[in-house]
Amino acid sequence: MAQKESTFFSMTATLFVVTFVAAGILGFIHDLTKDDIARAKLKAQKEAIESVLPKFDSLGNSYKVLPQDGVDSLVFFPAYDTNHQLVGTAVKTYTKKGFSGLFSVMAGLAPDGTITGYEILEHKETPGLGAKMVKWFKNASKPKQNIIGKNPGTTKFQVSKDGGDVDAITASTITSRAFLDAIVRAYKTYEGSQQHQEATKNQPKEGGQS
């Protein structure tokens, strides 16, 4: 076989050519796919917002709020109906307490802070265990584990083992704690934000709220 001899020059030249061509191809492909990747990500985000909020007409400008205890800010997507009334806010929240580190959740909050839905955006939890959180907390037939329609202000958003009102995923207490941490973070940050205060100011106060 006519293999090239390994001299200093041939080795340097070969490695240079190989890496140069590789860099060129990668740069080209990156340029080619850049816009489509951004579009796909945006589309996925929009679908997640639609699935966690009640039906809305238009999305307002998104804004970022820094949670009290965190370093990374949460992204807020306010949604309005045809009369420009706030129907809810989707909050892109996260937790760092997952069994396999960080995971991010899109949470839907009604103007008063009631959870209208959630969608797991990214996670690395164990399949068959922690990964069950994708559906676990929105099972309407099991009121103890369902969080949809509950308000973290009135319901204790902690796993029952810690004295809370939410049933943890079987054998995945760490993931469950982390998930609730993400939701509570979204709720607390939302409560502290400008928009919530405006929303509650405009709404007539209902009597008998605890």
């Binding site: 293999q3 090239k4 390994s6 041939s10 080795m11 070969t14 490695l15 190989v18 890496t19 492909i29």
Partner: peptide, 21 residues
């Protein structure tokens, strides 16, 4: 045939990593 024996592995790794990306 263009790759000298002594730099085979580094060249292959670059090619494979580029393909994966």
């Amino acid at each position: 045939n263009f790759i000298p024996a002594k730099v085979k592995i580094p060249s292959f790794i670059v090619i494979i990593a580029s393909l994966v990306t």
